[in-house]
Measured scan of single mutants.
Amino acid sequence: IRCIGVSNRDFVEGMSGGTWVDVVLEHGGCVTVMAQDKPTVDIELVTTTVSNMAEVRSYCYEASISDMASDSRCPTQGEAYLDKQSDTQYVCKRTLVDRGWGNGCGLFGKGSLVTCAKFTCSKKMTGKSIQPENLEYRIMLSVHGSQHSGMIVNDTGYETDENRAKVEVTPNSPRAEATLGGFGSLGLDCEPRTGLDFSDLYYLTMNNKHWLVHKEWFHDIPLPWHAGADTGTPHWNNKEALVEFKDAHAKRQTVVVLGSQEGAVHTALAGALEAEMDGAKGKLFSGHLKCRLKMDKLRLKGVSYSLCTAAFTFTKVPAETLHGTVTVEVQYAGTDGPCKIPVQMAVDMQTLTPVGRLITANPVITESTENSKMMLELDPPFGDSYIVIGVGDKKITHHWHRSGSTIGKAFEATVRGAKRMAVLGDTAWDFGSVGGVFNSLGKGIHQIFGAAFKSLFGGMSWFSQILIGTLLVWLGLNTKNGSISLTCLALGGVMIFLSTAVSA
């Protein structure tokens, strides 16, 4: 259960009878995928790494000078000259100064003066180019299975845990398959586009800190620079940016070097996208990844198990997540596992009318040892309800109150669905055939309105939902006002479609 501690969480529900669903994975976010007769899966884009970055340009932001020398000439005696002028490691300046009897010249006039100092770069920052084909995306998957609280967001041991898996995709191999043991396998067909235009970005490294910066900004930095990788004795261009020549006297000129420019660069980098280094690879934390999940090989585990009949206890007080759902960790005293956990939410304890829904599909106890633990997640209705676990006299209950409203949740879900469709863009549509167009249209309606429909009408039977949709269509056909007619027709059509397409 990876997503319960992530604030940016998206719930995606598969269409009834569908074998695939489109998701948008982004750094700092987590996606929970639910479908009829399929286990619930949490998917998170953990890291995006980039390798084989080529150094484009380096800037010196802290330097020192040494070996200063000057040469001067009297008027009419030609130009002052130093051998160091031809050495690229030196920074030199030529000027004219007033000369006369007082400073060793027989004539009054302008004399030539040249001053040089050896330039040494102490600290530099480097910009590297990123090729999209060198990106690698690491995705962690977790099935809502027989897990306890100690396994949440624990990325170790996934090789031997059938509840978890790690997959890596690249532009050259965008397809992967996550093996989930008894739950089958989940196929991923990803489109490795981060949403960032790397043709316009460089990877900047300064003092063990890293950013993504725009090329134009990078090339306009007014500091000494050299092109390409460091060859040991780089040729620094624009050395004068960190060196200041003071007022010249008759035979000498003082040279000083400016202080470190790291603070000024940090100020200019305010708002830039931060990154990290992992050995020789860069780690990015921006952008998104679009994936199509193929769920035809994914299956529920323990459908044929019998119900657990022994007593359950709450190991922890049920807690609310950031998303309005409830996490419950229970301990089973029996030894008759594997068995299914009898769990439901009810409005009252007399009729036990089921409300809400299970995020953890078909929760089971897989071990036959005593005191096995299991964590599950529920989506309670707004208002008061009861969490009921167990059967008969051994069942345990917990009162729950959820604040908020169904309308607010439906609106929030619609906005999130619209954002998801905007990110998917043209990849969500198939114009290759008439059937493809209608299929894409259905998927689009489901992406945007599916979660809201589930919130508003999830407790009704599909037949009642179709009746309401048919009534809206009838009202649309018999209303003389054009805008009201079109609105009723659209709402009725969407409702009829979703009542037959969205899983219960």
Results as ranks from 00 to 15, higher is better:
55 E>V: 14
350 Q>D: 03
479 T>F: 06
160 T>R: 03
502 V>H: 11
18 G>Y: 01
171 P>K: 05
117 A>N: 05
439 N>I: 07
125 M>I: 14
268 A>P: 11
33 V>T: 04
245 F>D: 07
472 L>A: 13
72 S>G: 14
255 V>G: 03
164 R>Q: 01
356 G>N: 06
186 L>D: 04
275 A>G: 15
17 G>K: 06
238 N>Q: 11
27 H>N: 10
26 E>G: 12
20 W>F: 05
260 S>E: 06
64 S>T: 11
452 A>F: 11
267 T>C: 06
398 H>V: 00
267 T>Q: 05
322 L>E: 04
34 M>Q: 08
459 G>I: 02
68 M>R: 02
486 L>I: 15
127 G>W: 02
156 T>A: 14
417 G>P: 04
440 S>E: 08
55 E>R: 02
13 E>H: 06
91 V>Y: 03
269 L>P: 13
414 T>Q: 10
480 K>P: 01
376 L>V: 15
365 I>A: 02
107 L>T: 02
189 D>N: 13
115 T>N: 06
190 C>E: 08
379 D>R: 00
174 P>I: 08
28 G>A: 15
488 C>G: 04
483 S>F: 13
61 Y>A: 02
57 R>P: 02
163 N>M: 10
433 S>A: 01
102 G>D: 09
199 S>G: 06
486 L>F: 15
85 Q>W: 07
411 F>E: 09
394 K>A: 10
384 D>H: 05
349 M>H: 15
448 I>Y: 06
286 S>P: 11
6 V>S: 00
92 C>P: 01
303 V>K: 00
71 D>Y: 01
143 V>S: 02
318 P>V: 01
44 E>V: 06
239 K>L: 02
215 K>Y: 14
313 T>N: 00
419 K>F: 11
467 L>E: 06
402 R>I: 06
396 I>D: 01
128 K>H: 05
203 Y>Q: 10
374 M>N: 13
291 C>M: 06
323 H>T: 07
306 S>K: 00
242 L>W: 10
394 K>M: 10
407 I>H: 05
333 A>K: 02
150 G>K: 06
110 K>S: 04
474 W>Y: 15
361 A>T: 13
157 G>H: 09
435 G>H: 10
146 S>I: 02
11 F>C: 11
342 P>G: 04
271 G>M: 11
381 P>Y: 04
333 A>H: 11
216 E>C: 09
214 H>Y: 13
229 A>K: 10
229 A>L: 14
5 G>E: 12
181 G>E: 15
116 C>N: 08
59 Y>W: 10
136 E>I: 00
20 W>A: 02
322 L>S: 01
239 K>C: 06
460 M>E: 08
205 T>A: 13
66 S>L: 12
425 G>E: 11
216 E>G: 08
93 K>E: 13
2 R>V: 06
37 D>Y: 10
427 T>G: 13
212 L>D: 09
346 A>L: 03
224 P>E: 10
153 V>D: 13
77 Q>L: 01
35 A>L: 01
177 E>M: 11
127 G>K: 05
382 F>V: 07
154 N>T: 12
449 F>D: 13
231 T>I: 10
182 G>I: 03
82 L>E: 05
461 S>I: 12
488 C>V: 00
59 Y>F: 15
344 Q>L: 09
76 T>Y: 04
490 A>G: 11
173 S>Y: 05
357 R>D: 08
485 S>K: 04
189 D>E: 14
455 S>N: 13
264 A>M: 13
84 K>S: 12
321 T>A: 12
242 L>K: 04
280 A>N: 14
256 V>G: 10
6 V>I: 15
357 R>P: 02
30 C>L: 01
34 M>A: 05
355 V>Y: 14
495 M>H: 13
83 D>A: 15
3 C>W: 07
353 T>L: 01
183 F>I: 12
343 V>M: 08
397 T>C: 05
82 L>V: 03
96 L>I: 09
403 S>T: 14
322 L>F: 14
24 V>R: 03
167 V>I: 15
401 H>V: 03
4 I>Y: 08
460 M>L: 11
49 T>I: 15
275 A>D: 01
187 G>V: 14
40 T>M: 10
203 Y>S: 07
49 T>V: 15
155 D>F: 02
23 V>N: 04
50 V>T: 03
6 V>H: 01
484 I>S: 02
221 I>G: 01
447 Q>R: 00
193 R>S: 10
283 K>V: 04
61 Y>R: 01
183 F>C: 12
159 E>H: 08
445 I>Q: 10
475 L>V: 11
434 V>A: 11
34 M>T: 12
313 T>M: 13
77 Q>I: 05
312 F>K: 09
183 F>S: 10
105 C>R: 09
74 C>N: 09
123 K>W: 10
181 G>M: 09
32 T>R: 01
58 S>I: 03
441 L>V: 14
463 F>K: 00
296 D>T: 13
141 L>S: 02
233 T>I: 09
230 D>Q: 01
254 T>D: 03
76 T>I: 07
141 L>A: 04
415 V>C: 10
188 L>C: 06
257 V>C: 14
112 S>R: 00
46 V>F: 09
119 F>M: 10
379 D>M: 07
100 G>E: 05
44 E>R: 02
179 T>E: 08
370 E>K: 12
475 L>Q: 11
382 F>E: 05
298 L>G: 00
400 W>C: 13
2 R>Y: 10
287 G>E: 00
372 S>D: 03
465 Q>E: 11
239 K>D: 06
480 K>L: 03
295 M>Q: 06
364 V>S: 00
459 G>F: 04
146 S>H: 14
273 L>G: 01
150 G>E: 15
3 C>F: 08
421 M>D: 10
103 N>K: 08
11 F>Y: 11
40 T>A: 12
403 S>H: 09
352 L>S: 15
397 T>I: 15
257 V>L: 13
378 L>D: 06
305 Y>F: 08
19 T>P: 01
270 A>P: 12
220 D>V: 06
203 Y>D: 13
466 I>Y: 11
82 L>C: 10
282 G>D: 02
432 G>S: 15
157 G>T: 08
281 K>E: 08
249 H>K: 09
69 A>I: 12
95 T>D: 07
213 V>L: 07
504 A>N: 13
456 L>F: 13
474 W>E: 05
157 G>N: 02
458 G>P: 11
170 T>E: 05
287 G>V: 15
67 D>T: 00
188 L>I: 15
492 G>Q: 07
371 N>T: 10
53 M>Y: 05
69 A>N: 05
41 V>I: 08
194 T>V: 05
391 V>R: 15
7 S>H: 00
289 L>G: 01
8 N>T: 12
305 Y>M: 07
372 S>A: 15
431 F>Q: 12
423 V>N: 07
473 V>M: 15
504 A>D: 09
463 F>L: 15
279 G>V: 01
477 L>M: 14
122 S>Q: 05
145 G>I: 06
177 E>T: 04
402 R>L: 01
245 F>H: 06
456 L>T: 06
237 N>M: 13
447 Q>A: 14
322 L>G: 00
238 N>S: 11
289 L>Q: 04
170 T>D: 06
343 V>K: 04
290 K>N: 05
13 E>F: 07
378 L>G: 05
354 P>I: 05
14 G>T: 04
186 L>E: 06
393 D>C: 03
159 E>M: 06
259 G>E: 09
166 K>Q: 14
443 K>E: 11
328 V>E: 10
132 P>T: 05
502 V>E: 10
156 T>C: 03
310 A>N: 05
